[in-house]
Each structure stands twice: as C-alpha cells, then as structure tokens.
C-alpha cells in the first residue's frame, strides 16, 4: 500500500480533509476518560500462575505501554482490563475524571482487524456503537469516526478492498466510535509493514491527543512503546519489573536521541543483560 501520513493541526475543529469534507460535529464530542486502579491482581490458569500480584495506577487520559517477553502475561493483563477474562485474585477498579467509581466502557483493538467481511466499512464501524442505536445516528457517528482515521472516502467499500493498514484503521475507528473512556491496544501494529506502522503510530498518537481517552498499549516493539507512551511498564514473569516515565512532550519525532536512550534502558531491563 502507499504510505498514508496525514498530519494536520490538532487545534482546527473544522479542518478541510483531502476529499473536501469538513469535520463532522460528532467527532468532537469529548471523552470521559477513566483511571485504572489495580491492587494485587492475580490470574492463574489451573496450576499456571500468569500474573503474580500486579499493583498499578493509571491516571485518566494517560498513555501507558506494557512491554515484556512473550509469555510475560501482558496479553492476559489486557484481557482482564476489558473483561474478556476474570481475574482470580486482587481487584480492578475504574474511576471517572471526577474520582467516582465508573464503568470502564473499554474498547479493544486486536492485532488482526477482525472486520466483518460482509459489511461495508461504515457498517463495520457502526458495530462499535453496540445495540439499539438509530440507523441514521449510527451512520453519522460511523462516518465521523472514519473521518478521524482519514478513511471517510472508503465508507462504502468492502473490507477486502482495503490494504492491511487501512483495515486496521477501520478497526481503530470501530473502537473509537462509541467514545470509550479506555482504549486497549493488543499489539495493533504487529502485522503491518515497517512504514505503515510508523504512519499508524502517528495516527494513534494524534487521535489520542484529540479525544483524550486513557490508552493501554501492549507491544513487543520497544521503540513503538517509547514513541507513543507517557509511561512504559515492563512485565516479567507476571510481575512489574520496571515502571519508566517518558517525559518528552508529544508529538514526538522518530529517531530522537533521548528516546533512543530510554529505549536502550528498557531493552536492557527486558533482556536482563547487564
């Protein structure tokens, strides 16, 4: 596929897109980000203890990346956060921006786009709104979400007509269309080629800045983690072995020297090669 890098100022609410449409109003609806509070969270599958007591607080609106070797429990942790699995010990709580307990309304983006091949792009995005939404309203919101990921002009196409990167952007739009307070990304760029991955990182960073949800990203790509996150957590054998803040302001440049240094530090922690 061709490289899609569409940068535009985050401050212009009625910017003009490449296909001439103005930004739909529904896209500017603000998000109620949630904060996460994990206390001694454990997960075991039979005799196999995958998570051994995770204590973690994530502020509302923060972008946290979780890295670690395969089998360290990072995907298990994600599945607990979105309620795909139940934890076997400890507690997980969500609070709204006002500090009161809140429903998570978490959405997840997987490594594969998981689009319904028999629905066009707009209807696939509308799936993210859940049940009982008026048809016209669903379509308006879906188109607005597609606008966010620069695929407004692909609304009527079948998923099979899109490239891998475009499909993943549709999956992102589907996750964002309901304006979730928490977005969980499970190695969302793992199946993409290197150049598409960079443009997708830029896209995710921009959407996160604009909508202000809390983001938790699981990745095996340390440079991706450092590029996107405010904070990187290293998981090792079911425990947090490092919790590193990335203070550089957004948007970040690829190839920044300070980021490269942090990246080295993280890699050393993951591989334990001191």
């Amino acid at each position: 596929m061709s490289l899609h890098i569409h940068e535009r100022p985050a401050t212009s609410p009625s910017a003009i897109t490449t296909n001439g449409a103005t930004r739909p109003d529904a896209a500017s609806t603000t998000t109620q980000a949630v904060s996460l509070h994990l206390r001694g969270v454990e997960k075991r599958f039979g005799d196999n203890q995958v998570l051994r007591g995770i204590d973690l607080d994530i502020e509302a609106g923060q972008f946290v990346a979780i890295v670690g070797k395969s089998g360290c429990g990072k995907s298990t942790l994600l599945r607990l956060l979105v309620g795909l699995d139940q934890h076997t010990g400890g507690e997980i709580a969500f609070r709204g921006e006002d500090g009161n307990p809140a429903k998570a309304d978490a959405r997840i983006v997987f490594q594969e786009p998981r689009l319904l091949p028999w629905f066009n792009v707009a209807k696939n995005v509308a799936v993210g709104l859940g049940e009982g939404v008026d048809k016209d309203e669903a379509r308006t919101k879906a188109l607005a979400a597609l606008w966010e990921v620069h695929l407004r002009n692909k609304a009527e196409e079948w998923p099979s007509q899109l490239s891998g990167g475009q499909r993943q952007r549709v999956a992102l739009a589907r996750a964002l269309v309901s304006r979730p307070g928490l977005l969980v990304l499970d190695e969302p760029l793992g199946a993409l080629d290197a150049l598409t991955r960079i443009s997708m990182q830029t896209l995710i960073a921009r959407v996160w800045r604009e909508l202000g949800f809390t983001a938790v990203l699981v990745t095996h790509d340390v440079s991706e983690a450092v590029h996107l996150a405010d904070r990187v957590i290293v998981l090792d054998e079911g425990r947090i072995s490092l919790d590193l803040a990335i203070p550089q302001p957004h948007p970040r440049k690829h190839g920044d020297a300070e980021l490269a240094e942090l990246e080295g530090k993280l890699l050393a922690a993951i591989l334990k090669d001191r």
Binding site: F110, R114, V127, G130, E131, R174
Partner: peptide
C-alpha cells in the same frame, strides 16, 4: 472464532 469474540466484546445480543 475471532469474529465471534469481537461480536461479544462489542456487546452483540445472541440474535445480533
């Protein structure tokens, strides 16, 4: 199976 899991995460009813 991945699509079924996706449907469940997005809160589809059995009929949906």
């Amino acid at each position: 199976r991945d699509l079924l899991e996706m449907g469940r995460i997005y809160g589809m009813s059995r009929w949906s």
